[in-house]
Computed example of a mutant assay.
Amino acid sequence: MFAAQHAGRYARQSLITQYNQLTGANLIVMIDAIFAHNMTLLEELLFDADPEMPLHLLLASPGGDGEAAIRMVRSMQQRCTELTVIVPDMAKSAATLLCLGADHIVMGPNGDLGPVDPQFQFHGGLAGAKELVAAIDEAEARVRVAPDTFPLFANLLAEVNMIMVQQARSALARSQALVDEALRCRTGDQTDEQVRALAEQLEGPLIGESKSHSAVISAGYAQSLGLPVETPDLSSDQWRLVWNLWTRYYTLGCWPAGQTAVYEGARASHIQSPQGM
């Protein structure tokens, strides 16, 4: 009865095992927003990982906390010979930061990175730091011109307090440093000068020039920025296994993110609904 009730879980783990046998890597799956309280779930997939094997992460995430992303990628890099992040759909914001710390980034036809725009949990969803600060600045400007509009904007922003605004400003100010820290997580030979040069090259596209959290950074654009992005052979057995897995997670209600969260590997499996079930 237990096996029947969890047949979908066993089928996914069987696909993960097939992927591991085919590639000689250790594949884990993370589909979730990135925050510090998720670290333990990721560690459950890593605590017995063989550090003499490559680690592949199937990642889908709208973003979250950049500091948590750095912690996650550092932890993964300590458990492998090299880290590959596979992006079948999108890995935005903090998830893009996590990708910057990988040795290889494999982006499918729908794969999409995004600006490093810190996210905050707000009203059961995520709010971008840029949008939060922009909303406050816009409200202040309008009230300055038309003081009688103060009640309107006070009502619209009633649940935004100054601590949240300051946290958003602080997170934005640290974005460039986080990009630099993520790049330094990579294995292989890279000098301080090379890291700094790449971080400076990424500052505009990933931080300064982006107007929206939803801005798209495609595989080709990411390659042009100097990132180690690869596109898969879509007819290969490896990609067929990845896509077979991804469709199973999608039909579980794992995407768009913010619904069911997944932390899964060949031996560990944690599926969490928004209600914590």
Rank of each mutant, 00 (worst) to 15 (best):
F2N: 12
H6N: 12
H6Q: 10
A7K: 05
A11T: 05
R12W: 02
S14F: 04
L15I: 08
T17V: 10
Q21F: 00
Q21Y: 00
T23V: 02
N26D: 08
I31M: 07
D32C: 09
A33I: 03
H37R: 13
N38D: 03
M39H: 02
T40Q: 12
L41H: 14
L45H: 02
L46H: 02
F47G: 00
A49K: 04
D50K: 03
D50N: 15
D50C: 06
P51W: 00
P51R: 07
M53A: 06
H56F: 09
L58S: 06
A60W: 10
G64E: 08
D65E: 12
G66P: 05
A69Q: 12
A69M: 12
R71I: 01
R71K: 06
M72N: 13
M72V: 04
M72K: 12
S75E: 14
Q77N: 14
Q78E: 12
Q78D: 10
R79E: 00
R79S: 09
T81W: 03
E82F: 07
T84R: 09
T84Q: 11
D89H: 09
M90E: 07
S93L: 04
A94N: 09
A94F: 05
A95W: 02
L98T: 04
L100P: 01
G101K: 00
G101H: 00
H104F: 05
I105L: 07
G111L: 13
D112H: 04
D112M: 15
P115D: 03
V116W: 02
V116I: 14
P118I: 13
Q121V: 09
G125E: 12
L126R: 08
A129F: 07
A129H: 08
K130C: 02
A135S: 06
E138N: 08
A139V: 04
E140C: 03
A141W: 08
R142W: 03
T149A: 12
L152I: 13
L152T: 12
F153Y: 14
F153R: 04
F153D: 09
L156E: 15
L157S: 01
E159W: 06
E159G: 09
M164P: 01
M164I: 10
M164L: 13
M164K: 09
A168S: 05
S170I: 06
R174P: 01
A177M: 09
A177V: 11
V179F: 03
D180M: 05
D180Y: 07
L183P: 02
L183C: 05
R184Q: 09
C185T: 05
C185N: 04
R186T: 03
T191N: 08
T191H: 09
D192L: 01
D192I: 00
V195D: 01
V195F: 01
L198N: 01
E200P: 01
Q201L: 07
E203M: 07
L206K: 05
L206V: 09
I207F: 08
E209K: 10
S210D: 08
A215M: 11
S218V: 13
A219R: 02
Y221A: 13
S224R: 07
S224F: 04
L225V: 13
L227V: 08
P228Q: 15
V229M: 12
E230R: 15
P232W: 15
D233R: 15
W239H: 11
L241Q: 14
L245E: 14
L245M: 15
T247W: 10
Y250K: 15
Y250R: 15
T251W: 15
A261H: 04
E264D: 14
Q272G: 01
G276P: 02
G276M: 11
M277W: 04
M277H: 10
